[in-house]
Amino acid sequence: MDKLTDLRFIIGLFFSLSGVVLILTYFVVTQSNHPQMNLYAGCVMLLFGLFMLLMFYKGDAADA
């Protein structure tokens, strides 16, 4: 439970999933209003989420 309440894990998970939603929206939903923004923002959010998850796992390994 302690590991799951690490804020890096929570933030990483949220932004990774949100990034995936935006990227999928770009590929699946046809839109006229700057659709490429979903792809760019989705990639940034996914990368940020993965970075936070990496920090979480690195911190976790260091603690162990």
């Binding site: 939603v21 935006l22 929206t25 939903v29 209003n33 659709p35 923004m37 979903n38 923002a41």
Partner: peptide
């Protein structure tokens, strides 16, 4: 400016 998806964010 935001398309659906980013609008949610």
């Amino acid at each position: 400016y935001y398309p659906s998806g980013l609008l949610g964010v």
